[in-house]
């Protein structure tokens, strides 16, 4: 009996590693499967037009068989970059306050609020965008005499910025908290003020982690769909200014997939857009990782 039990234990032990490996491989190969699936589905279009032509062309006229994706790619980048530019400074300063200045009591009040923000469904952010941000952008337009409908790249970037707040604040505070207190003490004891300690030592020490947080926030923003779609105007033209309308890739896919499938190649064009979004995110993450490795070395 004991022997049987023992041999079972050993067998289980031998198997466990292999089973885990299988699941790890499955998880990782999902990326390849998605990539393969998207490539396969976009092939009907890419057979006729090269990928570079699709990326480089700005004419989106599905009825005429013209599927230029440049306006969508530009919208996606503009909105995401703008959102990151808005969100990073706000979140960095907020996190600095939470970690370096706030008392425990205040910190314990703020962090749950940040978590609630993270739990709000994106459609609610979208509604808030329509009700508050779109009128706000119109108001800005009127005040500064800029033509705008309110539905704009700017409104989308603002919604997105608010949506990445919780991600950024959570990771920023985690990262800042990992900086050892002795390091703070050392800088202070050299005669540095608190702000000098934070800006010259703590941010520097935390640079790699802070950067990783920005990448995560950026990636999250790249793929965000519903809230952006509701405030961005969805006009398939190259955006003229941040007050103009845009049409990012996720919105394009969400608005049109499953509809107008009678138009030849439409399906393949949307899949090409998805493929491009996927590649952008992959490249972005890879580049981010390279920078991170470089930062960590210093």
């Amino acid at each position: 009996m004991t022997n049987k039990r023992n041999s079972f234990r050993i067998l289980a032990d031998k198997l466990s590693g292999k089973v885990f490996l299988t699941f790890a491989v499955i998880a990782c190969s999902l990326i390849l499967l998605i990539l393969a699936g998207l490539s396969f589905k976009s092939y009907p279009l890419l057979k006729h037009v090269s990928l570079f032509k699709v990326i480089g062309s700005s004419i989106w006229a599905p009825a005429d068989g013209k599927f230029g994706l440049l306006p969508f790619i530009l919208s996606t980048f503009l909105i995401t970059i703008l959102a990151t530019v808005f969100a990073v400074p706000v979140c960095l300063l907020a996190s600095t306050y939470i970690v370096e200045y706030a008392s425990n009591t205040v910190r314990n009040l703020i962090m749950p609020v940040v978590d609630i923000l993270a739990g709000i469904p994106s459609v609610i952010f979208g509604i808030w965008g329509v009700l508050v941000l779109v009128p706000f952008v119109s108001f800005l337009g009127k005040t500064f005499n800029i033509a705008t409908e309110g539905y704009s790249i700017l409104a989308a970037a603002l919604v997105l910025a608010v949506m990445v707040f919780p991600v950024l604040i959570n990771i920023f505070t985690e990262v800042l908290r990992t900086v050892p207190n002795d390091l703070r003490d050392s800088a202070l004891s050299l005669g540095a003020t608190k702000w000098e300690t934070i800006s010259k030592v703590i941010y520097r020490k935390a640079a790699a982690g802070l950067f990783a947080a920005v990448i995560l926030g950026f990636s999250r923003a790249l793929g965000e769909t519903i809230a952006v779609l509701m405030v961005v105007g969805n006009s398939p033209l190259i955006p003229k200014s941040i007050f103009g309308m845009g049409y990012p890739i996720p919105a394009l896919i969400a608005n049109n997939y499953g509809e107008m499938m009678s138009i030849p190649m439409y399906d393949a064009a949307l899949m090409t857009a998805a493929l491009i979004l996927f590649i952008i995110i992959l490249l972005f993450n890879a580049a981010g990782r390279l920078v991170l490795i470089k930062l960590e070395k210093n």
């Binding site: 390091l183 050392s186 030592v201 520097r204």
Partner: peptide
């Protein structure tokens, strides 16, 4: 300090 704390520079 107990453990050396070189500044990140």
């Amino acid at each position: 300090n107990q453990r050396p704390t070189p500044l990140p520079m």
